[in-house]
Amino acid sequence: MSMTTVGLAHYLVVSVVLLCLGLYCVLTRRNAIGVLMGIELILNSAGINFVAVSRYGSAGFDGQVFAVFIIMLAAAESAIGLAVVLGIYRRMRAIDTSRLTTLQG
């Protein structure tokens, strides 16, 4: 493909960048909410991949349907994740993941 017009590769590069930034966020953050934000970035990069491949691969809506499912699951995940974080905060007065060591042997 030529580099002058935007194609599948450009979207995939953006998606890879988002994935790496999200992974970095998940690995380095010690605030549980920050970790959840990193997960949102990773899920978004997967959504870009699905929609881009569906656009440039075959005509059809399979990729877009999957992107909608991803967004739905991300919303569910973040609702439950934040409910868990709030529960942990109420019990232990902290959401710093390095201080939540109750289960550590």
Binding site: C20, L21, L23, Y24, L27, T28, R29, R30, N31, G34, D96, S98
Partner: peptide, 14 residues
Amino acid sequence: SNRAVGSVAAGLLT
């Protein structure tokens, strides 16, 4: 509250 640790290792891995 937004502490980040292990940025070097995580950066290399990423």
